[in-house]
Design a protein around this nucleic acid. Structure first.
Length: 924
DNA sequence: GATCTCACG
DNA sequence: GACGTACGTGAGATCG
C-alpha cells in the first residue's frame, strides 16, 4: 500500500494581507514598496521547508467582484481598497510564487476560497489528502475527512474539534451558523440580533437553516421569532454568500500541482532583484546542502581568485595579460561620489572571469598622517612607486589594441582624468549595454545586474564602508576587504560584458549600441568636464531681489488671510482657501483627500477675481526660481573651474533621451520673464561667446516621417508654418490673416498628436469641452488620415512584441500594454505612440553630438560642446570663430541623419536655428 | 520617504 | 458604462 498523495492549498491573498500588516514599510532601491513581498516570500519559504506535501498550489483572489455580488451587490462592498503601497506588490508576489516554481492560481469571478474548495474536492476524489493553509474562518466549512486546515498564523492544525470550538457546531453546519450570524466585515447580512452563540444553539436544536426558518414560528422568544420571520430571505441569501463553491470549472488536475525544484537562477534572480539578501543567502545555503557541497558565502564563490597587486612587477604581469587578451574590465575606487573631485584610491582589473586584481593607490594615507608606527611595518601596502604605476596603467588605458570595459565608465573616466590619466580608449560600458538591451525594464546598477544575470549577490558598498554617519571612505577600508569588494566589481563587469555583448548580437542591437549610445560615453564625459560658466554675482543679486518680492507678497497674503501661515505648505494653503475663505472650485485629490492648490486651480480662482490665490501664484514663482535655481546654482559652482558641471544620465529615460542631474541643467527657466533672468547668468568664458543651436519642430517632423503624413511632409519640405497649416486644414481657415488663437489651438493639437492624443487631455489643455476637443481630433484625423493607421500599427506592435522601436532601431519596452486595467492600458498605448517620436528625436541629436566634436576639430576650431537640452545644443566658442562654428554646427546637425522612405527618398528635412551671444538667454 | 508642485523639452 | 488621462524628466519644500 502506498502513502496517499498530500496536497497543500495555500490561501495566497490571506498571506499577502498578513505579511503587509505585520511588517514595517520596506522599499527596493528603485523605490518599489516590498514589505508584503518580503513577508510573503519568507512565509512561503518557511512553508516549503516545513511541509511534507508532494503537491502544492497557491491560490489568489483575482478581482474585487465575484459571482456573490450578483446575488447580493453589497457583498464586501464597504471593504476599503487595498493600501496604495500594497497595490504594486500584488504582481511581485505572483512573481515570487512562480520563482519558487509553485503553481499560482486565480480566476475571474471567484474568490480564492471557492477555488480552494474546488481543488480540495477534486483532490479528495483522486484519493489525496488535503491541507488548506489559511487563517480564514470561512474555510472551516471544508474541514472533514481527509481535509484539514492549517493556521500558519498560530502554527496549528484545525480539525473538527477546533471548528466546534469556534462555531459551536460540526464543520458541515458552519455555513448555517454563518448565514444566521452574518458578518459585518464582509457585509453578509445574517439575521439581526443573532450572533454565533445563538446561531449555534438554534442550528443544534433544529438541524439546519431551512428547517429552522420553516419552523421559526415555534420559537418562544418573541423578538428572536419576529427577527427570524422578518429576515428569512436575508438568511437564505447569506447562506448562498458563505457557502463556498466547490464546482468551479477548472482545468488543472492534481498532477499539475506536483511539487518541483525551483530553477536556482530564476529564484536567485528574483530575490536579488528585490533586495532580499538574507533570503537569498538562505536559498543558496540550502542549495549547497542539497548538492552536498560546502556552503560558501554567496558573495565570494570558491573559484574566484582575487588578488592584491602592489608591486610594479606584478602590475606589469597583469598589464601584459590584458594586452594579450585585448580586453580588460576596469573599476576605480575613490573617496567621493562626486567623480570630478574624487581622488583615485585604487584600481581593479579583470581579464578572465573569476580572476581579478586590486591595485591600492591611496589607502590609509590620511589616517597614517602624524602617526608613529614605531618602526613597525605600516598598516597598509599601497602600490610601490605610484607615479611609475600610473604611467604603466596609462599606457594600457591608451593602448588602441585593448578594449577597456567599465560599469558606468563615465565616472571612472573622470576619476582617472583627475589622476592624470586621460585619453582612455577604446572603451565600452556594461551599464549602457544593459540599457540598450532592456531599457527601463529594470535598473542598471551593478549589484542589480549581477543578481539578475549572474545569480550572484555582490558585496555592497555599505557592507564595506557602513552607512549613515559612521560611513567611512574607501581609502579607510582594510586591504583584504578592499580587494574582495573592488576585484569583484571588475570581475562582475567582465562577466556582464561577455554576457551582454552576446545578447547584443543575438538581439540585433549592435547597431544601436555602436552608433548611438556607446560613443556618447566619451562625448558626455567631455561635456561634463567642460561645465558652463555661471555669473555668481548676478545670481546672488537675483536671489536678493526674489527674496524681497517674496517677503512683500507673503505679508500681503497673510493680511488677506487674516493670519500668518506657511505659504509654501499646500496643506495650509488649501485650508485657508477652501475652508476659512470658503472659496469654491476646489478639487480634492483622490489619493489623500487633500485640497489641490496647483497652478491650474489657483489660476481659476485668480481669474474669478480673488486676490490671495493670485499673490500665491506670484510668490510660488519667486520661491521656485530662488530655491531651485538662483541659490542652488550658486552653490553648484565648482571653485576650481568657476563653472557648473552637471552629470548626464545615459541610462535613465524610457525613450532614449538623456537626463541631467546634480544640478539639472535641462530645466533652466525660459518661459517666464523672471525665469529668463536666470538664463542671463549662463555666460561664456572671457573672450568667448555661447552658441545655441536647436532643432526646429523635430518631434513633429518625426511624426510626419514615421506616420507617413504626406501633407505634413510637404509642408515641412516647403518650409511652411506647420501650426498654421494644421489650423488651416483642421478648421478650414486660410493661413493668410489667421487668428493667433486659432493657430494656438492647432499647436496644442499637434502637441497632442505627439503625446498620443486623448479628447480629455486636449480639452483640458485648450480649456474647451470634451466633445469639442473630440471634434478637433476627428477633423485632424480626416485631414491627415495616415496618423490613425500609425497609431493603430504602433499599438499593435507593442501588444505583440511588448516593445516599440524608433526609426533607428532603439527598442522601447511598453510593459503596461497588456494590462487588464483599461486606464493603465490606455496610458501604455499613449506611451507606445509617443516613444518612437520622442526616442527618434533623441537618437538624431545623439548622432549629431557624436559627429560634432571631430567635425569641429577637423575644421581647426576650438569651439566646445557644453550642454544638451533634448533638442538644443550649447557651445562655447572663441569670439573670433563663433560665426564659423555656428555655421558648421548647423550643417552637421541638419545632416546628422537623413530621414528617408522605403525608396530612399528624403521624407522631411531637418532644420536648425542658431544664435550667438554672450549669454544663454540672448543666444537662444 | 511619500506627496505636491513646478521648472524644462 | 467605468476606468483616469495628454509624453518624457529632476528638484525642493512640507509633513508624517
Amino acid at each position: 500500500m502506498t502513502e496517499p498523495k498530500h496536497l497543500y492549498l495555500v490561501d495566497g491573498s490571506g498571506y499577502i494581507f498578513r505579511a503587509y500588516h505585520s511588517l514595517p514599510p520596506m522599499t527596493r532601491t528603485d523605490g518599489t514598496p516590498v514589505n508584503a513581498v518580503y513577508g510573503f516570500t519568507a512565509m512561503l519559504m518557511k512553508l516549503l521547508a516545513d511541509m511534507d506535501a508532494d503537491h502544492l498550489a497557491v491560490i489568489f483572489d483575482k478581482a474585487r467582484v465575484s459571482f456573490r455580488n450578483e446575488i447580493y451587490p453589497l457583498y464586501k462592498a464597504q471593504r476599503p481598497p487595498p493600501p496604495e503601497d500594497l497595490i504594486p506588490q500584488f504582481p511581485l508576489i505572483r512573481e515570487a510564487v512562480r520563482a519558487f516554481n509553485v503553481p499560482c492560481i486565480e480566476r475571474d469571478g471567484f474568490e480564492a476560497d471557492d477555488l480552494i474548495a474546488t481543488y480540495a474536492k477534486r483532490a479528495r476524489a483522486e484519493g489525496a489528502i488535503v491541507t488548506v493553509v489559511s487563517s480564514d474562518k470561512d474555510l472551516m466549512q471544508l474541514v472533514g475527512e481527509g481535509v484539514a486546515l492549517f493556521d500558519p498564523m498560530k502554527n496549528r492544525a484545525i480539525g473538527p474539534a477546533e471548528v466546534f470550538e469556534k462555531f459551536g457546531v460540526a464543520p458541515d453546519k458552519v455555513i448555517d451558523v454563518q448565514a444566521l450570524a452574518g458578518d459585518a466585515v464582509d457585509n453578509v447580512p445574517g439575521v439581526p440580533g443573532i450572533g454565533v452563540k445563538t446561531a449555534a444553539q438554534l442550528i443544534g436544536e433544529y438541524g439546519d437553516l431551512e428547517t429552522l426558518l420553516a419552523r421559526a414560528a415555534e420559537i418562544k422568544q418573541p423578538k428572536r421569532r419576529q427577527s427570524l420571520l422578518d429576515h428569512a430571505e436575508a438568511a437564505r441569501i447569506s447562506l448562498q454568500l458563505v457557502r463556498l463553491r466547490d464546482d468551479v470549472e477548472v482545468s488543472e488536475t492534481l498532477a499539475d500541482f506536483a511539487t518541483a525544484e525551483p530553477d536556482a537562477e530564476v529564484l536567485a534572480g528574483f530575490l536579488a532583484e528585490n533586495g532580499f539578501r538574507s533570503l537569498l543567502a538562505r536559498v543558496t545555503a540550502v542549495a549547497h546542502a542539497k548538492a552536498g557541497t560546502t556552503p560558501q558565502p554567496a558573495a565570494a564563490p570558491a573559484d574566484d581568485d582575487y588578488v592584491l597587486v602592489n608591486t610594479l612587477a606584478e602590475l606589469g604581469v597583469w598589464i601584459a595579460k590584458a594586452r594579450a587578451a585585448g580586453l580588460v574590465a576596469i573599476d576605480t575606487e575613490t573617496d567621493s561620489l562626486k567623480a570630478r573631485r574624487a581622488t583615485l584610491v585604487g584600481v581593479s582589473l579583470a581579464i578572465t572571469p573569476g580572476r581579478a586584481c586590486y591595485i591600492p593607490f591611496a589607502h590609509g594615507l590620511r589616517k597614517a598622517e602624524g602617526l608613529d608606527f614605531d618602526g613597525a611595518a605600516p598598516p597598509v601596502a599601497n602600490i610601490e612607486d605610484k607615479a611609475a604605476a600610473l604611467a604603466l596603467l596609462g599606457d594600457l588605458l591608451r593602448d588602441p589594441g585593448v578594449l577597456k570595459v567599465g560599469h558606468n565608465l563615465k565616472f571612472d573616466l573622470h576619476v582617472l582624468a583627475n589622476a592624470g590619466l586621460s585619453d582612455v580608449a577604446p572603451v565600452d560600458d556594461t551599464m549602457v549595454l544593459s540599457y540598450v538591451l532592456d531599457g527601463t525594464l529594470h535598473g542598471h546598477g551593478m549589484d542589480e545586474l549581477a543578481g539578475l544575470h549572474l545569480g550572484r549577490r555582490t558585496i555592497t558598498f555599505e557592507e564595506v564602508c557602513g552607512k549613515g554617519k559612521g560611513q567611512i571612505t574607501f581609502d579607510q577600508v582594510p586591504l583584504d576587504k578592499a580587494v574582495a569588494y573592488a576585484a569583484e566589481d571588475a570581475d562582475v563587469t567582465l562577466r556582464l560584458y561577455l554576457l551582454l555583448r552576446d545578447r547584443l548580437l543575438k538581439e540585433h542591437m549592435v547597431r544601436v549600441h555602436e552608433t548611438l549610445d556607446r560613443p556618447m560615453v566619451r562625448i558626455l564625459t567631455d561635456m561634463e568636464a567642460a561645465g558652463v560658466r555661471v555669473d555668481a554675482l548676478r545670481l546672488k543679486a537675483l536671489s536678493g531681489d526674489f527674496a524681497k518680492r517674496m517677503g512683500d507678497l507673503e505679508d500681503q497674503i497673510h493680511a488677506l488671510a487674516g493670519h500668518a501661515f506657511n505659504v509654501a505648505s499646500p496643506k495650509q494653503l488649501g485650508e485657508v482657501l477652501f475652508e476659512e475663505m470658503s472659496l469654491t472650485g476646489g478639487k480634492k485629490s483622490r489619493k489623500t483627500g487633500a485640497w489641490s492648490t496647483d497652478a491650474q486651480v489657483l489660476d481659476q480662482l485668480a481669474a474669478e477675481g480673488h486676490d490671495l490665490p493670485a499673490r500665491v501664484l506670484d510668490w510660488r514663482q519667486y520661491a521656485k526660481l530662488k530655491g531651485t535655481y538662483t541659490d542652488a546654482l550658486v552653490a553648484e559652482i565648482d571653485e576650481r573651474t568657476g563653472r557648473v558641471h552637471t552629470t548626464y544620465g545615459l541610462t535613465v529615460t524610457a525613450t532614449g533621451r538623456l537626463s541631467s542631474n546634480d544640478p539639472n541643467l535641462q530645466n533652466i527657466p525660459v518661459r517666464s520673464e523672471a525665469g529668463r533672468k536666470i538664463r542671463e547668468a549662463f555666460i561664456a568664458a572671457p573672450g568667448h561667446l555661447l552658441i545655441s543651436a536647436d532643432y526646429s519642430q523635430i518631434e513633429l517632423r518625426l511624426v510626419a516621417h514615421v506616420a507617413g503624413i504626406t501633407a505634413l511632409r510637404q509642408a515641412f519640405a516647403e518650409g511652411k508654418d506647420i501650426h498654421a497649416i494644421t489650423a488651416s486644414q483642421v478648421f478650414g481657415v486660410p493661413v493668410e490673416g489667421m487668428d493667433p488663437m486659432v493657430r494656438r489651438q492647432a499647436k496644442a493639437i499637434n502637441f497632442g498628436i505627439i503625446y498620443g492624443i486623448s479628447a480629455h487631455g486636449l480639452a483640458q489643455q485648450l480649456g474647451v469641452g470634451r466633445p469639442e476637443a473630440a471634434a478637433f481630433i476627428t477633423a485632424y484625423f480626416a485631414r491627415f488620415p495616415e496618423i490613425r493607421s500609425y497609431m493603430e500599427t504602433v499599438k499593435e506592435e507593442a501588444r505583440t512584441v511588448g516593445w516599440v522601436a524608433t526609426p533607428f532601431g532603439r527598442r522601447i519596452p511598453i510593459p503596461g500594454i497588456q494590462d487588464k486595467n483599461p486606464a493603465a492600458r490606455a496610458f501604455a498605448e499613449r506611451q507606445a505612440i509617443n516613444a518612437p517620436i520622442q526616442g527618434g528625436a533623441a537618437d538624431i541629436i545623439k548622432r549629431a553630438m557624436i559627429a560634432l566634436p571631430p567635425a569641429l576639430e577637423q575644421a581647426g576650431l576650438a569651439t566646445r560642446m557644453l550642454l544638451q537640452v533634448h533638442d538644443e545644443l550649447i557651445f562655447e566658442a572663441p569670439e573670433a570663430e563663433a560665426e564659423t562654428a555656428a555655421a558648421l554646427v548647423k550643417r552637421v546637425m541638419e545632416t546628422a541623419v537623413t530621414l528617408t522612405d522605403d525608396q530612399g527618398e528624403r521624407t522631411v528635412p531637418l532644420e536648425v536655428d542658431t544664435g550667438i551671444a554672450a549669454s544663454w538667454a540672448e543666444a537662444h
